[in-house]
């Protein structure tokens, strides 16, 4: 009799529950994140549309820095949004790649200023130092900074690397953002946004897709 009651209760529980238990390996789909990816991608593409409309010699970093910072903020918010979700390692890494890419593009553009237009000597020195640091080679990471301060004390190859970077940086500072580079950057960023969007959409369950 007792056994029958237990089975009846168990049966009731089983009937009420749609499924036993489900395993989750990836985070749940988040519509707000999908929207944030699409919105930031659109904003970035609009930025490039405007940049490419400008004649090459008028694509000055200073006049675009506000837009760079605004997009950087949106991307940082995407990183944060992804970091706040469980089982989301891949999307976190994707958004960090995007941020890294954006900062690289932003810094590269910052380093393409016409030195002659910088009135203050300190501004020129500061910018050159920033650009050398930014353009340092992977195999010299950590050395360039030291070399810059105490050239005599560091390795010969890094000394040469610093000298080379100095000359190349000064050369590059005369340029502005080249059309070909802007087109490549636009395409690469579009692809990262697209991969992030694929990642988010894949998390949708069949029921959510309907």
């Amino acid at each position: 009799m007792m056994k029958g009651k237990v089975l009846a209760i168990l049966w009731l529980i089983l009937m009420v529950m749609p499924s036993g238990c489900s395993v989750r390996l990836v985070s749940q789909y988040d519509a707000d994140t999908e929207k944030a990816i699409v919105d930031t991608a659109k904003k970035t593409d609009l930025f490039y549309g405007k940049v490419l409309e400008l004649p090459q010699d008028q694509r000055h970093y200073a006049s675009l820095s506000d837009q760079y910072v605004s997009i950087e903020t949106d991307i940082r918010s995407l990183v944060l949004r992804n970091e706040a979700r469980r089982l989301n390692a891949e999307s976190i890494e994707q958004s960090k790649i995007l941020l890294n890419l954006w900062l690289g593009i932003k810094n590269d553009h910052r380093c393409r200023q016409d030195m002659a237009k910088l009135k203050d000597d300190n501004d020129r020195k500061e910018l050159t130092a920033f650009c050398i640091k930014w353009q340092q080679d992977d195999n010299c990471t950590g050395f360039i900074d030291e070399c810059y301060k105490t050239v005599d004390a560091c390795r010969e190859d890094c000394k040469n690397a610093v000298k080379l970077k100095w000359s190349k940086t000064e050369e590059r500072l005369k340029d502005t953002y080249k059309t070909a580079l802007a087109r490549i950057d636009r395409a690469q960023l579009k692809n990262v946004f697209f991969y992030m969007l694929i990642g988010e959409k894949l998390k949708q369950d069949s029921a959510e897709k309907k």
């Binding site: 890494e93 790649i97 690289g104 992030m196 990642g199």
Partner: peptide
């Protein structure tokens, strides 16, 4: 940069 972009693509495959 392209290496990073490719990695982002492979991460989408990992999610899949």
């Amino acid at each position: 940069q392209e290496k990073k972009v490719f990695k982002a693509g492979l991460l989408a495959v990992e999610i899949a």
